[in-house]
């Protein structure tokens, strides 16, 4: 009888959400929309990423970042949010940790806004609507594989 070991796993692919040593990249989602947070969570978890926390505004996002640091790999940051917008939260996070990997996610794709975010230290910028492919590609380019 053939066992599993008889078949080399030629199609096996390591999920992009896993680090080379096999543990998942840890993600913080900052978004005031329950729908977007859920959608991101589903996309990321399906590829092996681990969503460790969600924050509903920029201020909460900044505070959660400090709380979780250094056990955190990527942050997704909405822009239009109550209390503190995503650009301000991005700046705060970058001041706290200059190596932070923050991906902006917004329905706004205005060039100067994108530029402003990238200049402030964002590693990537995703314009909504979100789809699985778009999100995973940008994540992959940020976690650097």
């Amino acid at each position: 009888m053939k066992t599993k070991e008889d078949f080399p796993e030629i199609n096996a692919r390591r999920p992009d959400g896993l680090k080379p040593e096999g543990t998942p990249y840890r993600v913080l989602i900052v978004d005031d929309s329950m729908f977007v947070a859920k959608q991101l969570n589903q996309i990321l978890t399906s590829e092996g990423y681990q969503v460790v926390a969600t924050a509903g505004d920029g201020l909460e996002g900044y505070e959660k970042y400090k709380e979780l640091y250094p056990n955190l790999d990527v942050v997704t940051m909405d822009i239009t949010m109550p209390k503190m917008d995503g650009l301000s939260a991005l700046q705060k996070i970058m001041e706290f940790d200059k190596n932070a990997k923050v991906i902006m996610i917004s329905a706004l794709g205005k060039q100067d806004l994108v530029k402003q975010a990238l200049v402030a230290g964002a590693k990537n910028y995703i314009v909504k609507p979100l789809d699985r492919k778009k999100v995973l590609e940008r994540f992959l380019s940020v976690v650097g594989k």
Partner: peptide
């Protein structure tokens, strides 16, 4: 429920934001 409301709100947000981006250009 809250999820339905958040979804419709996000739909409105995406449409408006894309229009604002075009108007900005």
């Amino acid at each position: 429920d809250e999820l339905v409301k958040a979804t419709i709100t996000e739909l409105a947000n995406m449409i408006t934001a894309q229009a604002v981006t075009k108007l900005h250009e």
